[in-house]
């Protein structure tokens, strides 16, 4: 990790701790914030979070292994680098029965990716996700924070073209 990013992580972690506090109930929100900014939680960030939580005024003692255990458990936090844009496709039954599989196949073909993979140019990462609670407009896919409902295979290219 470059020196620039390292100081970024430190500042980000500090801000997250100020916002969410130092108690154990802040661990997941802090990891989520780091994940939101970097797209994943880099290895050094675990150590940085534990370092900052354990210094002055820290009521908790947490080490990077525990934080890694958390991050890898929760689906919205990634421990591996992802592309600039992450496509999350709902693979659950309500989207599946209204034509989700065709959309998923088209996505895989168009991007030439399988579930969990990232394109060589680091533009796209394609993952499946569990239900997003938007079942009334399924099939649903999420590009970064943008939600697309009632998606048809024909719309896939159009949606992908919106992103740089």
């Amino acid at each position: 990790m470059s020196a620039l990013i390292e100081s970024d992580v430190a500042a980000l972690v500090q801000a997250a701790i100020e916002k969410h506090g130092r108690n154990p109930d802040a661990f997941i929100p802090i990891l989520s914030e780091v994940n939101h900014v970097f797209g994943h939680v880099p290895g050094d960030a675990f150590r940085e979070i534990s370092r900052q939580l354990n210094i002055e005024g820290g009521r908790v003692n947490v080490v990077e292994s525990q934080l890694y255990g958390l991050a890898s458990f929760y689906d919205m936090i990634s421990t591996k680098p992802r592309g600039r844009h992450v496509i999350k496709f709902c693979e659950n039954a309500p989207c599946h029965v209204v034509g989700g599989k065709a959309v998923w196949d088209t996505l895989q073909e168009t991007l030439n990716l399988k579930n969990g993979e990232t394109t060589p140019d680091s533009k796209w990462t394609l993952v499946t996700t569990s239900c997003l609670g938007l079942c009334s407009v399924g099939p649903v896919l999420l590009v970064d924070d943008d939600m697309y409902g009632n998606v048809t295979p024909e719309q896939v290219t159009d949606i992908l073209e919106r992103y740089e």
């Binding site: 997941i28 458990f73 936090i77």
Partner: peptide, 10 residues
């Protein structure tokens, strides 16, 4: 009341 956001686990 505190609002606590999960991180994706059914």
């Amino acid at each position: 009341i505190h609002v606590h956001a999960g991180a994706g686990a059914y």
